[in-house]
Design a protein around this nucleic acid. Structure first.
Length: 787
RNA sequence: GGGCGAGUAGCUCAAUGGUCAGAGCACUACAUUCACAUUGUAGGGGUUACAGGUUCGAGUCCUGUCUCGCCCACCA
C-alpha cells in the first residue's frame, strides 16, 4: 500500500468503476428481499447545493446499509425538469420572459437548455457517490412520464375527482399563473395602515382601516362586528366608496376584529381569504379590478392600467387632496408570497382545474398514521397541514413547459372530451380528438394549460417502478420501502404523493418515511445568496473529498438541522487517513494470510477482548441503522475503531506480530487483524464508500468473490467470537494501561520510556495477576506491583 | 393565536429511570525512528435553562415558567 491516500484520484477511479461494472444496477430477479427507495428527483437547477449533498448522503447511507444486509435494493434516480421551477430556471439562464418569446420558442428553448445543463447537474449526484442505478434515469418531462401523468389525470377525471370551475383562485402576477395553497410562503413586510373616511347616504362619516387602498375600486361592502356599539347605528346603511363612488352596504360579521384599526373594514373582491369567505356567505357581488398581469382595469377609472404599487401611490395622493386620508401608520405585517418568486399573490376569479380532496381529510390522516415516521414527530407536520387544508388542489398552470392537460372542450356543448389512453401523451394544442363529441359536435377548443409540476412528481413511486420491465414485480413493490426527503417539502411532495396514492390505489405509497433536516451556516443561520453565506458542495469535494463530506453529513440524526463547519469536514478527512494507516499496519502483517476457522482455538485474551467489543459494536450499529439512526451507528463505530482497535488493541498486538515467535499465536493475531479490519471497513463502507473500496480492492478482493465491497454482506453476529467474561476481565488490563500512561504523562515520560517499577491499584488483584507480563512488556516496565 | 421540536463543558453533540453525566473540537502540558504529527498520552473545564412534583433513585417521567428554532393560521 502507498504511504498516502490520494482521494482525488481514488474517488474518481471508484466512481467510474461502479458505473462501468454496473455495481448498483437493479436486477429484479436477484436474491434477497427488496428494499425500494422512492428517491427524490431533484428539481433541475444549475448545481447541487449543500442541503442536497447533506440529505442525499443520508439516504445513500441507508441504501448502502440495506444492500450490505443482503437486501435487493431498488434505488432509482430521476430529475424533476418540468413545470414552473424549470421554466424559471430557463428564463434566468437565457435572460428572457416566457410571455415575451411565445409558446413554441419557449418550449424549444427549455428543451435545449435542459439538454445542455442536465449532464453536469446529474454529475453532482454521482460525485457524492450516490449508489443509485444511474443506468436508467427518469425525467418528469419525458414522453413516457407525460403519458403516465396524463393517464392518471384521466383516471381522476373519470372518477369525478378532477373538475374545472370558475372560482376565486390564488394568482401570481409575476408568473401569471394560478397556484396552489402549498405554493404560498409567508413574508414579513413593512407596510402602512391607512385610515380612510367613508360617508353614508345620510352624511354620517366614519373611518375604515386598510393596508390596500389600491383595492378601493373592488370594494363591495363594509363590515363591522355585530357587538361593536360604535357602529350599531350604521349597519344596513349604504355608503359611498371614496374616489370610485360605488354604493355598498354595511354588514355585520363576527370575523371582524373590533380592536384592529377603526373596527370597520372594507370587503373587496378579493383582497384576502376572508373576503372570499364573506363573498360566499353574504352573497356579495364581484368587482374584480385586478387583472392577471397585476395591473388595475377600467373599474379603477383613471388608475386603470397602472401596476398595483403605482396605483396605491396615486390613490393615496388623491385621498389626501380630498381630505379623506385621516391617518397613516407604519406597520410590519405578514403577506403571502409565491414560493418560487417571492411576489405577493393576488386572488382573482378565473376558470381553473382542481383535484377535489377536501372531503378526504380524515382518510389522509389515517394514511399518514399508517406510515412509520423517522423521526416520529415529523408526522405532526403533515397532519397539521392536512387539517389546515382549505382549498381543493388547483392543478392548472397558465404556463407552457409542462405536462399538457389532456382535454379538448366541445364548441357546441362545452363538454370536456378526453383522448384515448393509447394515444397518450397528447398536446391538445397540436392534435384533435379522434372521435366526435357525444353531442355529435366536431369542433373543439384545446385546453392550453399545463399541469402543476407536483401533479407529476406526486406519482414518483409509479414512475420509478415503471422502469422495471416485469409488471408483476412492479405491483408487488407497492408500497415501496422508504421515502427519504427533507422536511421543507412535507406539505408538498410528501402530502401530494400520499394523496395520489390514496386516490388511485387506496394504499400508502411507502412503509417508512425518513426526514432530513437543513444545513445552516456556522452561526446557525439559513444559507442564502443575499446573506452571502453559501457553501458549495463542489468546493468541499475539491478540498476534502466526498468521503470526508459524507462523514460530516452523517453525524446528524434524521430531522435534525446541522451547522456547516469546515473543522468537522477535516475530522472526516482525518478519519479517512486513520483508516488508511491502520489498514497499512494490519495488511503489512497479513501477507499470504488466509483466514482459517481453526485459528480461533489459539486466541489470546486480548484477541477475545477486541472480538467481543467488535461483536457489541456491530450489534449496536445494526440496531441503530435499522431505525435510520446513522449518526448513532457511526458514533458507536468511531469509538470502537479509534479507541478500542487503534489505541489499544493494535498497540498490544504489536508485541506479537513484530516478534512473531509462536506460529499459532501469530496466526491467531492475524485472524483477529483480518476479521476486525474487514468488519470495520464493511461497517464504514456505507458512510465512506471510496476509502473502504480502495482497501477492499487492495487486499480482501483476492479472497472474496464480490467485485466490490459494497456487494459484500456485513459480518454476521457470531456468538463463537464473543467472550463476555474474558472481555470483562481484560477491561482491567485496559484500565491498568490507562493508569500507567497517566503516570508516564504526569512524569513527562514518553509512552515507550523504560520504567523500573510501577504500582497499580486495583480491586481485582487476582484477576490482573495473569496479565502482568503482558503489561510489563507492552508498557516497557521492569516490574509491576499490584495493590 | 395553534402545533412541533430544542435548551447538557467555551463550541458541536452523546447518555434503556440506575456507578463519579460522557465524546469530539477548542484550550494547556508532555512525548518524536518501529501504521499514523493529518499523531499519541494526559490535564483543566458541568447548579444538565429555571421552579415545583412523582420515585429508593430524575439530564431522562409529570406540571408550570423562560429562551431559541421550525411549521401552520392571522394578513382588513
Amino acid at each position: 500500500m502507498d504511504k498516502n491516500y490520494d482521494f482525488k484520484i481514488k474517488e474518481k477511479k471508484w466512481q467510474e468503476f461502479w458505473e462501468k461494472e454496473g455495481v448498483f444496477r437493479f436486477d429484479p430477479g436477484k436474491k434477497g428481499k427488496i428494499f425500494s427507495i422512492d428517491t427524490p428527483p431533484p428539481t433541475l437547477s444549475g448545481k447541487m447545493h449543500l442541503g442536497h449533498a447533506f440529505s442525499y448522503t443520508h439516504q445513500d447511507i441507508v441504501a448502502r446499509y440495506h444492500r450490505m444486509r443482503g437486501k435487493n435494493v431498488f434505488y432509482p434516480f430521476g430529475v424533476d425538469n418540468n413545470g414552473l421551477p424549470t421554466e424559471k430556471l430557463v428564463e434566468k439562464i437565457n435572460n428572457i420572459r416566457l410571455h415575451d418569446v411565445g409558446r413554441k420558442n419557449f418550449i424549444e428553448l427549455c428543451r435545449k437548455t435542459i439538454k445542455e445543463i442536465l449532464p453536469d447537474f446529474i454529475a453532482d449526484w454521482k460525485n457524492i457517490a450516490m449508489s443509485c442505478d444511474f443506468s436508467n434515469i427518469y425525467s418528469t418531462i419525458s414522453p413516457q412520464v407525460q403519458k403516465m401523468s396524463q393517464e392518471y389525470f384521466i383516471e381522476l377525471f373519470q372518477n369525478k375527482r378532477v373538475y374545472k370551475k370558475y372560482a376565486p383562485v390564488l394568482w401570481c402576477p409575476e408568473c401569471q399563473t394560478a397556484i396552489a395553497q402549498a405554493d404560498l410562503e409567508d413574508k414579513k413586510t413593512n407596510s402602512k395602515m391607512y385610515d380612510i373616511e367613508f360617508k353614508t347616504n345620510d352624511e354620517k362619516r366614519f373611518i375604515i382601516s386598510t393596508t390596500r387602498p389600491e383595492l378601493l375600486s373592488s370594494c363591495v361592502s363594509v363590515f363591522v362586528h355585530p357587538d361593536d356599539k360604535r357602529y350599531s347605528s350604521l349597519s344596513g346603511k349604504i355608503v359611498t366608496v371614496p374616489i370610485f363612488s360605488q354604493k355598498v352596504i354595511i354588514l355585520k360579521d363576527k370575523k371582524v376584529d373590533p380592536k384592529k384599526g377603526s373596527g370597520a373594514v372594507m370587503c373587496c373582491t378579493f383582497g384576502d381569504t376572508t373576503d372570499i369567505d364573506w363573498y360566499f356567505r353574504h352573497k356579495l357581488p364581484q368587482r374584480l379590478s385586478v387583472e392577471k398581469n397585476g395591473r388595475l382595469n377600467d373599474l379603477a377609472k383613471e388608475f386603470g392600467g397602472l401596476k398595483l404599487k403605482m396605483a396605491r401611490q396615486g390613490i393615496i395622493e388623491k385621498l389626501k387632496k380630498e381630505g379623506l386620508l385621516k391617518k397613516e401608520t407604519d406597520i410590519v405585517h405578514t403577506v403571502n408570497v409565491h414560493e418560487r418568486c417571492q411576489t405577493e399573490i393576488e386572488i382573482l376569479s378565473c376558470s381553473q382545474w382542481f383535484v377535489k380532496y377536501l372531503d378526504l381529510k380524515k382518510e389522509f390522516l389515517a394514511q399518514s398514521n399508517k406510515l412509520k415516521w423517522y423521526p416520529p414527530y415529523m408526522r405532526k407536520r403533515l397532519d397539521n397541514w392536512i387539517e389546515g387544508l382549505r382549498w381543493d388542489w388547483c392543478i392548472s398552470r397558465q404556463r407552457y413547459f409542462g405536462v399538457p392537460i389532456p382535454v379538448w372542450h366541445c364548441k357546441n356543448c362545452q363538454k370536456a372530451v378526453l383522448p384515448e389512453i393509447s394515444d397518450l401523451p397528447v398536446d391538445p394544442l397540436h392534435s384533435n380528438p379522434k372521435r366526435k363529441c357525444e353531442c355529435n359536435g366536431n369542433d373543439f377548443i384545446p385546453e392550453g394549460d399545463v399541469l402543476d409540476t407536483w401533479m407529476t412528481s406526486s406519482l414518483s413511486p409509479q414512475i420509478a417502478l415503471s422502469m422495471i420491465k416485469d409488471k408483476k414485480k412492479q405491483n408487488k413493490m407497492l408500497p415501496m420501502s422508504l421515502r427519504p426527503q427533507a422536511h421543507d417539502i412535507i406539505n408538498f411532495w410528501l402530502f401530494y404523493t400520499l394523496a395520489r396514492s390514496y386516490l388511485h390505489f387506496k394504499k400508502i405509497p411507502w412503509g417508512d418515511v425518513m426526514i432530513s433536516g437543513f444545513v445552516l451556516d456556522s452561526k446557525g443561520e439559513k444559507m442564502s445568496k443575499s446573506k452571502g453565506n453559501i457553501v458549495e458542495p463542489r468546493v468541499i469535494l475539491e478540498q476534502y473529498g466526498a468521503d470526508a463530506m459524507r462523514c460530516w453529513a452523517s453525524q446528524s440524526s434524521p430531522g435534525d438541522d446541522l451547522c456547516y463547519s469546515e473543522q468537522e469536514v477535516k475530522i472526516g478527512k482525518r478519519t479517512i487517513i486513520k483508516i488508511w494507516n491502520a489498514s497499512r499496519f494490519c495488511l503489512a502483517h497479513l501477507k499470504n494470510y488466509k483466514p482459517k476457522n481453526s485459528d480461533i482455538y489459539s486466541l489470546a485474551d486480548e484477541d477475545k477482548w477486541i472480538l467481543t467489543k467488535l461483536y457489541r459494536t456491530t450489534e449496536e450499529y445494526i440496531k441503530r441503522m435499522e431505525k435510520y439512526e446513522y449518526a448513532g451507528a457511526k458514533l458507536a463505530l468511531d469509538n470502537f475503531f479509534w479507541k478500542d482497535f487503534c489505541d489499544n488493541y493494535l498497540e498490544i498486538v504489536k508485541l506479537r506480530v513484530y516478534e512473531n515467535k509462536d506460529e499459532k499465536n501469530f496466526r491467531a493475531a492475524q485472524f483477529v487483524l483480518y476479521t476486525t479490519l474487514y468488519s470495520v471497513l464493511k461497517l464504514y463502507a456505507p458512510i465512506m464508500p471510496h476509502i473502504t473500496e480502495e482497501i477492499y480492492q487492495e487486499y480482501f478482493k483476492a479472497l472474496e468473490k464480490e467485485k466490490s465491497i459494497h456487494l459484500t454482506k456485513f459480518p454476521k453476529l457470531n456468538k463463537k467470537l464473543c467472550f463476555f467474561a474474558i472481555a470483562r476481565k481484560f477491561d482491567l488490563v485496559i484500565d491498568a494501561i490507562a493508569q500507567i500512561r497517566k503516570y508516564k504523562s504526569a512524569h513527562n515520560l514518553s509512552v515507550n520510556a523504560e520504567v523500573d517499577k510501577i504500582i497499580v491499584k486495583t480491586k481485582n488483584k487476582s484477576k490482573l495477576k495473569k496479565y502482568l507480563f503482558l503489561l510489563c512488556r507492552m508498557m516497557s516496565i521492569k516490574t509491576i506491583e499490584i495493590m
